[in-house]
Design a protein around this nucleic acid. Structure first.
Lengths: 324, 324
DNA sequence: ATCAATTGAGAATAATTATTCTTGGGTGGG
DNA sequence: CCCACCCAAGAATAATTATTCTCAATTGAT
């Protein structure tokens, strides 16, 4: 019976604290208690479930899906965006917006940003970033050479440059094809002092923004001319490759797939990426599910930004495979 | 659209803080934000109703009734106790328990407690107090002489003494009748040095525990022999009296009613009571509604402890009268 | 009954959180 | 275009809260 009297008082203290907004010391004075006691009563109020705090996700957000992604794939953060229709264009726009906001909110001073600048999603991100006047970032480093058609290559350079301008950083470009014709050709291309300089920054990147590619080349990539021939792609698939990040391939289990082609890519390696403090992956769309799942299994992505359709399928599929 | 991205992040921060119990500085580190920003986001989360805190009153408590009593009667605190049946015996027992708990929880060191020791409710309170070993209170002062029958007078003394023992205090008794036969007789009784000494403590009382009497004498009071004759009671009623605290009468509007009888009472006056830091009134039961309501209007009671039936009728009745 | 272990509360202190102060940028009116 | 004002964010600081430390008292086990 005295327990009830005790709880009544605890409830009253909780009411004064949480609803009336009074300070603990104030409440302590009111009841002639010590502040320490009030603090303990409030703790007790939570334990007794007299005080309950709920966090309501705003509609259009998917906190539960995010939680599952974090937990299934051991991510530092996951952002799942609302998207009315499961269409690639819409999805990329929404992911881009969310990524832009996240970047703006969390970008530190003097960061060195790495960006693999030929994904449409990343383009959407850049389009949504507000200019940050007081030069926040130090460098924006292009982590993969341009693809095929020189016009598109320039596009990629421009995207990097634009991101640099928006973040008040200096752009460090890779004005070279992403894939050389041969290892020897790569050596030649790498001889360029600007290329060397940019590459030298890879280990210093503090924040990398990457897209995830499926074996099906994306629109942008396709338009940019063929990167790898279908024969080469077949070779990669043969070796188990299901997706790539900056043209570095991996298999469904999250293992790195090395083929001779690897020697011809001019860009950041997965090993280098693994050393980056924050790796943000932007990817969505039903055609990429498998690639994304595999990419997450690499264990080098810290933050995934995706759409609710993809998120849902990723979470379910991963959970099932773990049980199976 | 960016508002949603902002709210998502706020929601996530709120989740980490409130549900995962992480520190603001920790969250700030996770998102590369400043602790100040996290604090502001959390404030915003409350404003946006992303975070909601509810205080659930344990069943068997009546927070809303208490709130109404506090507000209608301008009380510092109100305690409304659960009570299965609207029967005086049960009500007094519950009120006593609650009062005991409240006293134990809020009693300071060196307090000087005044107690008008002839109410059954106060007796129940004393019965429920656990001994406080490290002498908390300084004195327990009897604020009204005993009534009629010397046996009952002794009872009253014993109750005071018992409360003193339980609180580790020294008892200061009024070993005299509560009502003298005449003002002159009162002067004689007051000549007693112990009586004078006790009375001298009235202005030093820091916490007074009082009952509220209706014009209908209570069981205990009746058993103790008649205090006032029916003629005298009629005289008081004539003057508007509807209730008393330590035999000091007041009318329905909360005004003090002085009659010649007042000159014969040996006990604390309402003026003295008004100067006491904390005045705790213990009263319940349907027969006392009017008296309690009037007593509360006196404005000298800080804390009321009553039962849910009485509380409910008090709150309703006061609200109606205020509207009318 | 005695004693170690446990509990409970306040005082003092450490940790955490809110706010003020300051700076720099954005904005809108002249 | 310039200026004044407003707003946002972090650093520094003030305010608030949680915890540790201490002491005393209780309990349970001999």
């Amino acid at each position: 019976m005295s327990r009830l009297n005790e709880l009544r008082m605890i409830a009253r203290v909780a009411q004064m604290y949480h609803l009336e907004g009074r300070r603990q010391a104030d409440i302590a004075g009111h009841f002639h208690l010590s502040q320490a006691t009030v603090s303990r009563m409030l703790k007790r109020a939570v334990a007794e479930e007299i005080v309950r705090t709920t966090v309501v996700a705003p509609s259009g957000t998917y906190a539960e899906l995010e939680r599952r992604l974090r937990s299934e794939f051991n991510l530092s953060e996951a952002i799942v965006v609302e998207c009315a229709e499961n269409r690639d264009g819409a999805i990329m726009a929404r992911i881009g917006e969310a990524a832009a906001h996240f970047l703006e909110a969390t970008l530190q001073n003097e960061e060195i940003i790495g960006v693999s600048s030929w994904s449409e999603t990343i383009l959407k991100m850049v389009e949504n970033i507000h200019p940050m006047k007081s030069g926040k970032a130090r460098y924006v480093v292009q982590t993969l050479g341009g693809m095929g058609d020189p016009t598109v290559q320039m596009h990629a350079n421009q995207l990097t440059a634009r991101l640099a301008r928006l973040t008040g950083a200096e752009a460090r470009l890779l004005s070279t094809p992403g894939v050389a014709a041969s290892p020897a050709a790569k050596d030649v291309l790498m001889d360029d002092p600007f290329v060397r300089e940019t590459q030298a920054l890879f280990p210093k990147i503090t924040l990398a923004i990457v897209g995830i590619g499926a074996m099906q080349p994306s629109n942008m990539l396709a338009r940019s001319g063929n990167v790898f021939s279908s024969q080469e792609l077949a070779e990669i698939e043969e070796a188990g490759g299901v997706g790539d990040i900056t043209l570095r391939f991996f298999n469904a289990k999250g293992g790195v797939v090395k083929t001779p082609l690897d020697e011809r890519v001019i860009g950041m390696s997965l090993e280098e990426l693994a050393h980056v403090d924050r790796v943000i992956a932007l990817a969505g769309g039903s055609s990429k599910i498998g690639a994304i799942q595999a990419a997450l299994r690499l264990g080098i992505i810290d933050i995934l930004i995706t759409d609710r359709f993809t998120a849902s399928r990723l979470a379910v599929s991963e959970a099932i495979e773990k049980v199976g």
